Simulated scan of single mutants.
Amino acid sequence: MSIAVSDQVKENSALLRLDLNDTANALRVLSDAYVIPPDPTKKSGRYTNSGVLDADGNFVIQSISWSNSTEQVNSAPATPAPEEVEQLKGRYIFGGVLYGHFGHFIVESLARLWAQDAEGVDAEAYIFTAKVSTFPQKSVEKLQKLAALLGLRLPIIVARVPTQVETLYVPAQGFGMNDLIEGSAAFRTFMNTHAGAGIEPTGDEKIYISRSKLPSDRGSLLGEYKLEEYLAAEGYDIFHPQRFPAEEQIARYKAARQIIAVDCSPLHMLGYVGHKDQSAAIILRRSMVIGDYLARQLQSFKGMDAYSIDCLLDDWILQPGSRPSRSSWGEIDFGALHAKLLASGHIQNPTPWPSLTQEERSAELERIEKMHEAKFRSYNEIKVIRNKSII
């Protein structure tokens, strides 16, 4: 790991730049180290003071979790008072931050699974700090089952209070979002060896991973129903992964040869369990670079053909927001999408797809505003107003 200075955490520690190729500093073995969860009296959020301190109270840089190679999620916590500390005998692997959100869990919470196969590691469980102190045990058990399908062989425990561990292995994060999306060699090898092992491929050769039946707070495409109609006519099965157990999701992703999806978390799962003979088309649903990153994961982990397709005309932003997010809705040019899917070989019918009519577009906007009980605003309009205010 190479050192880089950060204004964000100068008061706590020097910020380190995560280098996924730095194998020499990827794992530390500590005696009597402290695993410190976020302070339950502080307002919960993504950025916390938590992680691992060594026996002398020094922050262990391998315990940092990262949004990208330069943005820390957690910074050095305070050394706990002796009366606050629980003792834990045995050998454990530090797992990082435990997230309940599916995408953050399979990307960030599982990013240290590679340590199970590291030379000299002999542990009895993973110990995590939860994003929030109220993280329910039932959720831990549910995530344990999902992680087991992706290669986890050890139980998960959560440090609810500062915990001093007799022997603690602290691996660096081996995977993540943004510029960490290709993963370390150790993480890729681990996932390609263990994820989905023993689950036989079952299902259609063409699938569209749909968002049309997700909870109302998750964004998608205006007129996704129309895209589903077009793709069903091309022989695609419209797949709603949240309605199936994880075993079946994996089986379906293994069986498919052609996959189309809007940018979404299930594509990370495909990156773990898919194979090189697949071809994936990722349709951008928001003005972000996430499609390119998802394509890079599929390419680097599996060597599959993967394409990010941008046909966005606008983003519709849930108010009072001002930027695309997981709750925004993309408005796309269906004709341009058809042309790009035809060129990539994902569809065959040369007849262009009509975009939404003005009436259909208005009905969609009315539908999502009613669903959210809030207004949506055009991102193009927001940018115009912002630029005028700057000028």
Results as ranks from 00 to 15, higher is better:
241 P>F: 12
241 P>Q: 06
242 Q>N: 13
242 Q>M: 13
244 F>D: 02
244 F>H: 08
246 A>V: 15
246 A>H: 13
249 Q>T: 02
249 Q>A: 03
253 Y>S: 03
254 K>L: 03
254 K>R: 15
255 A>W: 05
256 A>P: 01
256 A>D: 01
260 I>W: 03
261 A>L: 07
262 V>I: 14
262 V>Q: 11
263 D>N: 15
265 S>T: 05
266 P>C: 11
266 P>L: 10
267 L>R: 03
268 H>R: 04
269 M>E: 03
269 M>T: 09
269 M>H: 00
270 L>F: 06
270 L>D: 05
275 H>W: 12
279 S>P: 06
279 S>E: 14
279 S>L: 13
280 A>F: 03
282 I>T: 09
282 I>Q: 10
283 I>G: 04
283 I>M: 06
283 I>S: 05
284 L>M: 12
287 S>P: 05
287 S>I: 04
287 S>G: 06
288 M>L: 15
288 M>C: 08
288 M>Q: 13
289 V>T: 10
289 V>P: 15
289 V>G: 10
290 I>C: 09
291 G>S: 09
291 G>L: 11
292 D>W: 09
292 D>E: 14
293 Y>H: 10
294 L>E: 15
295 A>P: 00
296 R>H: 09
296 R>D: 15
298 L>N: 07
299 Q>N: 13
299 Q>K: 15
299 Q>F: 11
301 F>A: 04
302 K>G: 00
303 G>P: 02
304 M>T: 00
305 D>Y: 01
306 A>L: 06
307 Y>G: 00
308 S>H: 06
310 D>R: 08
312 L>I: 03
313 L>A: 10
313 L>T: 07
314 D>A: 07
315 D>G: 05
315 D>L: 05
315 D>Y: 03
315 D>T: 04
315 D>R: 04
317 I>T: 12
318 L>S: 00
318 L>H: 03
318 L>W: 02
318 L>I: 02
318 L>N: 00
319 Q>N: 10
319 Q>D: 11
320 P>L: 08
321 G>C: 11
322 S>R: 12
324 P>N: 12
326 R>H: 09
326 R>W: 07
327 S>W: 01
328 S>Y: 05
328 S>V: 06
328 S>C: 13
329 W>D: 01
329 W>C: 01
330 G>I: 03
331 E>A: 08
332 I>Y: 08
332 I>M: 11
332 I>F: 10
334 F>I: 04
335 G>Q: 14
336 A>E: 14
338 H>D: 10
339 A>S: 13
341 L>G: 06
341 L>R: 05
